[in-house]
Amino acid sequence: MLDNIDKKIIRLTQDGLPLATQPYLNIAEQLEVSAAEVMKRMQQMLDKGIIRRIAAVPNHYKLGYVANGMSVWNIADEKILGYGKRIGQLPFVSHCYQRPRHPGVWKYNLFAMIHALDRNQVEKHVGTIAELVGDDNRGHEVLYSKRMLKKTGMRI
């Protein structure tokens, strides 16, 4: 469980890591704990998956990855874990989740978000996934984004 110090570390870093030579010490000083304590706690959060990773997040659009296609797949429930794992490993997939179907409205249970330079490349990537799933693919679609209506960071 997260305690108050963990929560304070999260609040201080959710907008980013300090751009100072000793960023963890910088956080530690604001919390009146040692830098070693901050590093230990962040490492633990990383190990537990509370922190997915510490990294730079590129702006897909500015790097030219302007085509974003949400590929959705209908895969037998008993086979989804194996395929999900393999699809998540593909370098062009930014999110990969199993989600519920809505009978009559929505038949897809696996979502893989694809980023590419253009729609042709998205389609190629979709082909790569289709090949990987083979005969276990009971149907798929790609939903292209038309407009980003809102995007804010997650906040606690």
Binding site: I10, T13, Q14, D15, G16, L17, L19, M42, M45, L46, I50, I51, R52, R53, I54, A55, A56, V57, P58, N59, K62, L63, G153, M154, I156
Partner: peptide, 9 residues
Amino acid sequence: FLTRFGPMY
């Protein structure tokens, strides 16, 4: 060019 730099929770 970067939207964020740091831990992703």
